[in-house]
């Protein structure tokens, strides 16, 4: 069984005011097939955790470790991490002019598998996955994310999740900006990928609403760059009722 272990992770970013510590010792272990929700107020470092795992150059890992089945992820390039089985569904997917979605998906699949997928079954698979996400076929002819609405970009992220079949996926606020119909469609996609590939999920969110559709096994409350509390799904319910105030009070006092 695959395991993704985050150990005492410290991460900083350069800002105009100098180096800023964002993650201050994160410990988190995700086993294959588990769904972990990371919840927390804005600015607590949730997205930094997501980008650090994926290897975005803006974030500097000061210390700590991210291990995938014992292999140090932090030593890998961004594309090596993806090929090792990690996936990041981004909060703000970028537009790539001139690159057709169909070509992009096939290029990514080829890079991950080390060989080009057989054309006919691949096209069929893409079409079925798009249909399940209520995406029009015409999307595959469009340039990657170009002119997509916010909801379409999120569906495109989940389409990739289903087609590229990673072992672990970090979903960075995939629920943000979605109306309830789109939220359901996207959640169903995540649940399909989870069931089909025994996917381990790190679901990053500010709100509990997506947890009605994607049931977490564990909930971690993220405050000021570290995990402040952990528990089962009942912790999410408590957050729904109480909000994050309970965790923030200490910080304000300090």
């Amino acid at each position: 069984m695959s395991v993704l272990e985050i150990k005492d992770l410290h991460v900083s970013v350069e800002t105009e005011q100098g180096t800023k510590q964002i993650l201050k010792g994160v410990d988190l272990t995700i086993k294959q097939g588990e769904i972990h929700a990371v919840m927390g107020p804005n600015g607590s470092g949730k997205s930094t955790l997501a980008y650090s795992i994926a290897g975005h150059p803006k974030y500097h890992v000061e210390s700590g470790s991210v291990l995938l089945d014992g292999a140090e992820v932090l030593d890998m390039t961004v594309d090596e991490r993806a090929r090792a089985g990690l996936f990041l569904a981004m909060q703000y997917p970028v537009e790539i002019p001139g690159v057709r979605m169909a070509d992009f998906l096939r290029t990514a699949k080829t890079a991950l598998d080390g060989e080009a997928p057989a054309l006919r079954p691949w096209i069929k698979e893409v079409n079925e996955a798009m249909k399940a996400l209520r995406m029009d076929k015409a999307f595959s002819e469009r340039n990657v994310n170009e002119g997509f609405s916010g909801g379409e970009k999120k569906r495109h992220e989940i389409l990739q999740l289903e087609l590229l079949k990673p072992r672990f996926a970090v979903l960075d606020e995939t629920d943000s900006g979605l109306d309830v119909d789109a939220l359901k469609i996207v959640s169903e996609g995540v649940n399909r990928a989870h069931a089909a590939n025994d996917l381990g999920v790190l679901l990053i969110t500010h709100y509990t609403r997506i947890l009605r559709y994607i049931k977490p096994d564990f909930v971690h409350v993220f405050v000021d760059g570290r995990v402040a509390e952990e528990g089962g799904p009942e912790l999410a319910e408590r957050l729904e009722n109480e909000g994050y105030d309970r965790f923030l009070t200490d910080e304000v006092v300090a």
Binding site: P57, D79, R83, G98, V99, A108, A111
Partner: peptide, 21 residues
């Protein structure tokens, strides 16, 4: 970053971006 995060090598990602441009 977006392309590399999908497993595409840096060289291939650059090629895609220029050709797309």
């Amino acid at each position: 970053f977006y392309l590399q995060a999908r497993g595409i090598s840096e060289a291939e990602a650059r090629r895609l971006v220029v050709i797309g441009f």
